[in-house]
Design a protein around this nucleic acid. Structure first.
Length: 877
RNA sequence: GGAUGAUUAGCUCAGUUGGUUAGAGCACCUCGUUUACACCGAGGGGGUCACUGGUUCGAGUCCAGUAUCAUCCACCA
């Protein structure tokens, strides 16, 4: 037996073990089949890694995502499924370009235009590559059992082919169109931004009231008002009923007299300001809609750099922020200013991807029409409807369910998706122009003189295809045919913050191109926050970097602290203390292992005899196996982990191991511990694998591919009557039946049979109907007092009625044991037999007192009075 | 303005279709170093489950309202 360190030193093991796993090839399901670890026709289980942006390092949120996904993947692999976890990275077009522009400017003072498209793109690619390498390293550090052989990038050659195929198909179907529409223009980054990428920030500003002919209009942005020649009021606003819709008036405005037209439109809020407003259709989405409704012309006031156009006359060429005060001065000189408020709170729109203040502009862009209908399975549907149906029908189950509402609400308000961006880093739009000719295809058209559209696609267009573009769709038909067994993927695990950006768009794309959902379940995890619940950010200095934690505490401790205490859709708070406590736990497990190793040999598989304590721990283990399995199936990772921790520490280590010191049963000790290692493996892959190798020797198969424990080695038989001890004489019958149901975990839908023994049968007869209905009782037998109690029953006393519930075959062993413990002193007329199968032998125990011995009290005695306990236990055999 | 969630021990949180005396980890107090572990063990204190009503034999759990906090969506020209 080799010397084993007293404490677990994660750093000594982790890299070595990861290398061993990787070299085994078992992260790749093909190898699992080839080596006979799983059956060739095994059920697939697949997850795509939400591709991290190549904008830098992974943060703690990524670590949490990796931990949860690795639990699912390792668990399902051990369940014998054909398990694939497919990695990749996202080019994050606008975010990455913006980041590199920033670095470039800081380091050299140059802009991307100084370098030119090609040279700048080279820089971005270099940056992306180095980010990618960092990320891949970090993903490994977390212990992620990912199939690196299938790694993909949203902007690599293959994905480009998928994107082109997708674009062309949508273009040919008329789903993608080009149009002049109002878009969110970022003058700083010189690109459009989608509605979802906009962040709003409160700003205190001045608010101006101007005289506009007979009307008073208000605005926070006087600089947009040059071209306003329509004043709009609500149709039912009595203040303006003397004016007719379409009526023209002459008035004095910023640059002289103009003719304005009065419009009546219900979009106006009568309560706000004077209830009258002028519109600037080119620079405001609502004004644009009003103008569209009334067929008005639109005029651009501000150029794409944020400067005023010639319509502003002497202000032309001026930056809009500078111009504002000057325009107001001019209006003041003309006595057109009615009032100026100073503390007006108003929201400004900002490009959340590191850009500037959004200026709405009308621009020719590419859009995906979400409302256009097409024929699918003989029915007219739109993309919106496809997205709705996928979730409504249960094809995609969202966990937690409440996000369904958010999802539907978002779709209801969804407008056409602007997919073109005026940035360089991304998939070029596969459209070519030659004069008036336009060509869309997966390859450049033949012939000279064609020029490709200079815009690129929104990054979410390519990530929307991710579940199938990674499996060969669009670039390798043979691969796709082979691998589409993994589609739809089993589950998508990602943050709720990208429900709209990504989750919804994947559903859109997959439904459109494949006619199926991209994943069967969407598990949405929360954000990781600091101890005080604040977002982690550089400026607050509260960032926990996974790479700082892992060397000191180990990846396992980090994983546990991110999983335990975390429920889907809720943010989790993480502090150093929590990590330390799980570090202590990994060490605890390590030391239990040390004890097991010094006490037993790998050959200890069959026990010579079984004591009551052995039975008890085996029974408990079985119940833990069942609970943990159930929780994992239901995505309750936190509860699964807690159940395991409580059992491992409080029952196995503190109780059974102590008993083992007095009364050794090495086979049972080993059996329980090795089963625990398997159960813990998905949560803590490193320390469990390290212990496994030490317990079994280096040459053995990896714990990673061991079979998940599920064998129920224990059966229980109860016979005789069991007294139920609640609410004697105080509660009505229904309550009693419900109590028994709850106590024995009887399925509420399941009907039971009850027997009542009472002196007053008339009273009972009158109650039969209601009891049957409310307590879901199949049959009620009423017996006269003095009749014999039926067997296989629990009974309860209610006043002077004895109620018996027939329990054959539906007793819950756990609950029953606990209850038995309490009832022990009062009732003696039962027997309890437990059979335990270990190694090919059956062991039978008929010693109920031992099963219900008061664990820790007995243990204390055992420690203090070893002799006494020894004889006590000996008597039980 | 609309929506969603949270409110349980000093702190962080469990509590899954309503059911015996509301749990855990950390922190705190007492005792103990007995060969797996002091990164430990034994024991203990501490909760009007935010508030007010309602439904029920029974409510932390279900319903209505209130308060505080958080997040998302829409935004007023």
């Amino acid at each position: 037996m080799q010397e084993i360190s007293k404490t677990y030193n994660a750093a000594d093991w982790e890299d070595r073990l990861y290398k061993q796993w990787e070299e085994s090839g078992y992260f790749n399901p093909d190898n699992l089949i080839e080596d006979g670890v799983i059956a060739p026709d095994a059920e697939p289980f697949s997850i795509v890694l939400p591709p991290p942006n190549v904008t830098g390092n992974l943060h703690i949120g990524h670590a949490s995502m990796l931990a949860i996904e690795d639990i699912m993947v390792r668990y399902n692999r051990m369940q014998g499924k054909r398990t694939l976890w497919l990695p990749g990275a996202d080019h994050a077009a606008i975010a990455t370009q913006s980041k590199v522009e920033g670095i470039l400017h800081k380091e050299t003072g140059l802009t991307k235009h100084d370098l030119g498209r090609e040279a700048f793109l080279k820089k971005v690619e270099d940056f992306a590559q180095s980010s990618h390498d960092t990320i891949a390293h970090q993903v490994r550090k977390m212990g992620s059992s990912i199939d690196w052989s299938r790694e993909a990038y949203t902007l690599d050659e293959n994905r480009n082919l998928s994107v082109r195929k997708a674009f062309k198909q949508m273009y040919d179907d008329g789903i993608i169109y080009r149009g002049d529409r109002i878009v969110n223009w970022d003058p700083k980054m010189q690109t459009t931004v989608s509605d979802d990428e906009i962040e709003r920030k409160e700003e205190k500003t001045k608010f101006y009231y101007f005289q506009y002919g007979p009307f008073v209009i208000s605005t926070a942005r006087p600089e947009t008002k040059f071209g306003d020649k329509h004043v709009v009021v609500h149709p039912s606003d009595n203040r303006y009923k003397q004016y007719a819709h379409g009526q023209q008036i002459e008035l004095e405005w910023i640059n002289g007299p103009i003719t304005a037209t009065i419009l009546k439109d219900e979009a106006i809020d009568m309560e706000f300001g004077s209830g009258a407003m002028t519109i600037t259709p080119w620079h405001d989405a609502i004004d644009f809609d009003i103008a569209q409704r009334h067929g008005l012309s639109k005029e651009q006031i501000i150029d794409f750099d944020g400067k005023l156009l010639p319509i502003a006359r002497e202000f032309a060429g001026m930056d809009i922020h500078e111009a504002r005060e000057k325009i107001v001065e001019k209006l003041q000189a003309k006595s057109l200013v009615v009032k100026i408020e100073d503390d007006y709170i108003h929201n400004i729109a900002i490009n959340s991807r590191g850009g500037g203040i959004i200026e709405p502009q009308i621009k020719r862009q590419w859009f995906i029409d979400v409302n256009k209908t097409f024929v699918r399975d003989g029915k007219e549907v739109s993309l919106k409807q496809l997205m709705q149906t996928a979730v409504r029908s249960g094809g995609v189950e969202i966990i937690p369910e409440r996000f369904k509402r958010t999802y539907f609400h978002w779709i209801d308000n969804l407008r056409d998706w602007c997919i073109s961006r005026q940035i360089w880093y991304g998939h070029r739009i596969p459209v070519w122009y030659r004069g008036e000719e336009i060509y869309c295809g997966t390859k450049a058209p033949e012939g000279a003189g064609w020029e490709q559209d200079s815009d690129t696609l929104d990054t979410w267009f390519s990530s929307g295809l991710w579940t199938f573009s990674t499996l060969g769709w669009g670039f390798d038909e043979e691969k796709w045919q082979r691998e589409k067994i993994y589609h739809p993927t089993s589950v998508l695990e990602t943050g709720y913050d990208i429900l709209f950006f990504w989750v919804a768009r994947m559903i859109l794309m997959s439904e459109y191109f494949l006619g199926e959902v991209p994943f069967k379940k969407a598990y949405l995890h929360g954000l990781v926050r600091d101890e005080q619940g604040r977002k982690m950010s550089k400026s607050l200095g509260n960032i926990i970097d996974p790479l700082d934690i892992i060397p000191e505490h180990g990846a396992d401790a980090l994983r546990l602290s991110l999983v335990i205490g975390s429920t889907p859709g809720n943010d989790i708070k993480l502090g150093a203390e929590k990590i330390v406590s799980f570090h202590n736990f990994t060490n605890k497990l390590w030391n239990i292992g040390r004890y097991v190793m010094t006490q037993s040999e790998a050959t200890d598989t069959a026990p010579k005899a079984i004591t009551a304590a052995d039975h008890f721990i085996c029974l408990r283990l079985d119940s833990v196996v069942n609970e943990v399995t159930r929780h994992l199936e239901q995505y309750n990772f936190s509860i699964a982990g807690e159940t395991l921790r409580d059992f491992t520490w409080n029952e196995f280590a503190d109780w059974y191991v102590e008993i083992h010191k007095i009364q050794k049963n090495d086979a049972v000790l080993r059996y329980v511990f090795e089963t625990l290692l398997k159960l813990w493996h998905p949560f803590m892959p490193f320390v469990t694998e390290a212990l496994w190798r030490q317990l079994r020797g280096e040459g053995v198969p990896l714990l990673m591919i061991e079979k998940w424990p599920k064998d129920i080695a224990h059966t229980t038989h109860f016979s005789g009557d069991i007294a139920a001890g609640f609410g004697h004489g105080t509660q009505p019958l229904i309550t009693a039946v419900r109590n028994i149901r709850a106590t024995y975990h009887i399925d509420p839908v399941k009907k039971v049979t009850i027997t009542l023994i009472a002196p007053d049968s008339d009273f009972l007869t009158s109650q039969v109907g209601i009891i049957q209905k409310l307590a879901r009782v199949e049959a009620i037998h009423i017996l006269k007092e003095g009749a014999d109690a039926p067997s296989q029953c629990a009974y309860v006393l209610i006043r002077d009625i004895k109620l018996y519930v027939h329990l054959e075959g539906i007793l819950d062993v756990e609950k029953e044991k606990i209850r038995l413990q309490k009832e022990l002193e009062q009732t003696k007329n039962y027997t309890l037999r437990i059979e335990t199968q270990l190694g090919n032998q059956n062991f039978v125990s008929q010693a109920p007192e031992a099963i219900i011995l008061k664990n820790k009290e007995e243990l204390k005695k055992a420690q203090n009075k070893a002799k006494e306990i020894e004889s006590h236990l000996a008597n039980l055999l």
